[in-house]
């Protein structure tokens, strides 16, 4: 039994930042990198299924990214995943989620897992695209924003909840193998023990380039292109000015309006 979890090293941008000279990205000095928050839940869900399955079960984590993305894989390995795969080629630096899905599809074909999990979306761009696009390319069953999962390895179907707008959930069954995008809150992600972190350094991480996946020669194309990137004209927060009484009055108005009072 094998579950493949596709993870992403997301970029956390400073409150203050500067654009690149070409106007199509942000200057790299202004980022921190971290494992996507949603992916912690996807990894945990895979680990829980693996642990219930016992001997011979395996969780493999895969990412598409440069060597900085190794940290994301090591984080997942430290929690208990067995091995990692990192795919990179400099030509992937500016591709979109659909192109990433094309790369991942080749990895899934190689690994032939029983299930594929991704986070429901990434915390930086929130495309909510990669996992489902991957399913489309594979022709696999799929469900997005899964907030509860009942899957016994080997079974022909799994039962899941999709979290919809307003907290409503739909319960559905799905044929396996499937690609599921995992929602926050489906479980309580664990923290890696210090021992786990030390052990993760010894776990295998396979590095693949596009040729190894049969994707050389410009086979990985995007469905969109960044024409330009820019900071919004004004900061997001509307600052409520005035005396405390005026501020509170405006705040009360906002509450009443949003609460329909």
């Amino acid at each position: 039994m094998k579950i493949l979890v596709a993870v992403k090293q997301v970029s956390i941008l400073d409150d203050e930042f500067e654009m690149r000279d070409d106007g199509r990205g942000v200057d790299a000095d202004f980022f921190e990198k971290d494992l996507n928050e949603f992916d912690h839940f996807a990894v945990e869900e895979a680990l829980l299924i693996k642990e219930a399955a016992g001997e011979g079960a395996e969780v493999v984590v895969v990412t598409v990214g440069d060597d900085e993305a190794d940290d994301a894989l090591r984080t997942a390995l430290a929690k208990g995943a067995e091995r990692g795969i990192r795919v990179w080629d400099d030509s992937l630096a500016e591709v979109d989620s659909i192109a990433i899905a094309k790369v991942l599809a080749k990895v899934v074909e190689r690994e032939a897992p029983d299930m594929v999990f991704t986070g429901a979306q990434s915390a930086d761009f929130g495309h909510a695209t990669t996992g489902m696009a991957l399913a489309g390319l594979l022709g696999w069953p799929h469900a997005a924003v899964v907030s509860k999962l009942d899957f016994v390895p080997g079974a022909a179907t799994a039962t899941l909840h999709r979290e919809l707008e307003g907290g409503l959930e739909e319960i559905m069954t799905i044929q396996c193998p499937a690609v599921l995008s995992i929602q926050l809150g489906i479980n309580q992600p664990r923290y890696a023990s210090l021992r786990g972190i030390r052990q993760a350094k010894q776990k295998p991480v396979e590095e693949l380039d596009l040729d190894a996946l049969g994707l050389g020669g410009g086979a990985v194309t995007s469905a969109s292109r960044v024409r330009r990137m820019y900071a919004p004209e004004k900061g997001q927060a509307e600052i409520i000015e005035g005396t405390v009484a005026e501020q509170a009055a405006r705040l009360a108005e906002i509450i009443k309006e949003l609460r329909g009072i």
Partner: peptide
């Protein structure tokens, strides 16, 4: 860009080779 579209729009775009942007 609702939860239903999350489930089918990227799939259709990837399968059919469309241009695609979400949200």
């Amino acid at each position: 860009h609702g939860v239903d579209a999350w489930s089918y729009a990227p799939v259709a775009a990837a399968k059919l080779g469309f241009g695609f942007a979400s949200d």
